[in-house]
């Protein structure tokens, strides 16, 4: 009995970690290149929306022909579209922050604001309903690996951690990325294009965050709901700081937050605490973490500063 509860808890912690991990690893690319990406939350929402809409419209013609048919490729196309759109939103953030040297936080906030308004407008146009998309019949499948049964994106997120570590710390690309975030003038002087590296970093962060969003809408659920990310983008950002901008640290931090969210579901479900109280716990935890009593985080030195090319 006890073990069943624990296994359920662990599994739901892993699921809750997945979107956070995607977003935080995405944020890592952006912030390591020196661009604050507070837009993670909004990019997740755009990813979730795109995934749900594209999946729905890909499977629609088939389902019209033969109701109830499986369309196994639909969610994958949805995921791909989400990645493209995420990259696109990342590009907008990069364009405004790099090309126009905007305050990166304001630019990110603008994207987050847009992610509240635009989905509602689009949903109204498509489904005459401003808060939810039509449910999709084909979610991402569940893959069983031994005792584990998860969405492929869950495996993907965890596999991504060593990959990101390798890319950021063992490849020339990663070295340049970090150099650009630490000391852009120095990087520039040895011939690294600061601008291009930063664009790349922010676009990758958009792609990854959108994958986290797609997991929410077509992996863990079967439709898009406005503001369904519920602050995960911000928690991911905190996890990034907590994890000291390092993939392994990020993994630990997101697992902690994921576990907390899983616990929240369990606590609320078991009527131990009113769900409203439990909801606020991860946010309070995040604030305590940010207050830095668990060790001081040192950000990439050039973060948040526009680069003026000499």
């Amino acid at each position: 009995m006890e073990t069943v509860v624990l296994v359920t808890l662990a599994a739901s912690a892993v699921r809750a970690t997945t979107p956070l991990l995607f977003a935080a690893l995405g944020g890592l690319f952006s912030e390591r290149s020196g661009i604050v990406n507070i837009a993670l939350e909004g990019i997740m929402l755009f990813g979730a929306l795109t995934a749900a809409l594209v999946t729905y419209y890909v499977e629609l013609p088939v389902l019209r022909e033969t109701p109830g048919a499986r369309v196994p490729y639909a969610p994958w196309i949805g995921l791909l579209a989400a990645m493209v759109v995420g990259g696109g939103v990342g590009f907008v953030h990069a364009l405004v922050s790099i090309r126009y040297k905007a305050d990166q936080i304001i630019s990110g906030v603008a994207i987050n604001l847009m992610a509240i308004g635009l989905p509602a407008v689009i949903l109204t146009g498509l489904f005459a309903n401003s808060t939810t998309s039509a449910p999709v019949a084909n979610r991402l499948p569940s893959w069983t690996l031994g005792p584990l049964t998860f969405s492929p994106l869950v495996y993907g997120a965890f596999v991504l951690v060593p990959i990101v570590w390798y890319v950021v710390f063992r490849t020339p690309f990663g070295l340049r990325l970090r150099a650009v975030g630490e000391h852009p003038e120095a990087a520039d002087s040895v011939g690294i294009s600061v601008i291009r590296m930063r664009y790349t970093g922010v676009i990758i962060s958009g792609v990854l965050a959108a994958m986290g969003g797609a997991y929410l809408s077509i992996g863990a659920f079967n439709q898009f709901i406005t503001e369904m990310s519920g602050g995960r983008g911000f928690i991911a950002l905190a996890a990034l700081i907590f994890g000291k901008w390092h993939p392994l640290g990020v993994l630990g931090a997101t697992l902690l937050f994921g576990a907390f969210q899983a616990l929240e579901t369990q606590l609320g479900g078991a009527a131990l605490l009113p769900p409203t109280v439990v909801q606020s716990l991860p946010f309070i935890l995040t604030m305590l973490v940010l207050a830095g009593f668990v060790g001081r985080a040192i950000p990439p030195k050039a973060i948040g500063k526009p680069f003026h090319k000499g």
């Binding site: 907008v92 364009l95 405004v96 090309r99 126009y100 905007a102 305050d103 304001i106 630019s107 906030v109 603008a110 994207i111 604001l113 847009m114 509240i116 308004g117 635009l118 509602a120 407008v121 109204t124 146009g125 005459a128 401003s130």
Partner: peptide
């Protein structure tokens, strides 16, 4: 086919464009 959310979208765009100093 339009909702008041168009307005919140306009607001978000204003923030974005002002951040970019109106291009």
């Amino acid at each position: 086919d339009l909702t008041r959310d168009v307005v919140s979208m306009i607001l978000a765009l204003v923030v974005l464009f002002i951040a970019a100093k109106g291009f």
